[in-house]
């Protein structure tokens, strides 16, 4: 950060506060811009998007056990469901570039994404056919 040039302890509180505020403001600007992602294909998400952004991994983890171990299908929170709705309109995928939904946000947030080492990153064919490109996010 901008502290580098100052000898340790030489910052007066006022200056420090100003620097800090500046840093926060700059950070907020960059955050507000956010990653630019493919739009969802149709309808509202299964949960409030704010909640999804924070907790989708917990929902997925809970429902994967329901599906794999207890055979509950379709799960409300299913990874295949995410992919179907958020896949890119052209290639039907959620990975490939920083505009693709899953990859884009994970690279923006610098969080490793290993679901797709095993899971398909491509929407199911029926979903592609019935997709509504450009539908409200």
């Amino acid at each position: 950060m901008a502290m580098a040039g100052f000898p340790r302890g030489s910052l007066r509180p006022a200056l420090a506060a100003a620097l800090l505020l500046g840093a926060v403001a700059a950070g907020a600007g960059a955050l507000a811009a956010g990653p630019s992602l493919d739009p969802a294909r149709a309808g509202p998400c299964v949960e409030d998007p704010k909640l999804m952004r924070r907790s989708h991994m917990d929902f997925l983890k809970h429902d994967r056990d329901d599906t794999v171990r207890r055979g509950i299908r379709p799960a409300k929170h299913s990874l295949a469901g995410c992919v179907d709705c958020h896949a890119n309109a052209k290639d039907g995928r959620v990975l490939g570039s920083d505009g693709h939904f899953c990859q884009g946000c994970h690279s923006y947030a610098a969080v490793k994404l290993d679901c797709f080492d095993c899971h398909a990153a491509t929407a199911r064919p029926a979903q592609t056919a019935s997709a509504v490109p450009g539908a409200a996010r």
Partner: peptide, 15 residues
Amino acid sequence: PVDKRRREFLGGAAA
């Protein structure tokens, strides 16, 4: 309508 859309989103397995 919300339930209906969710159902469609959830993969049409019910159908």
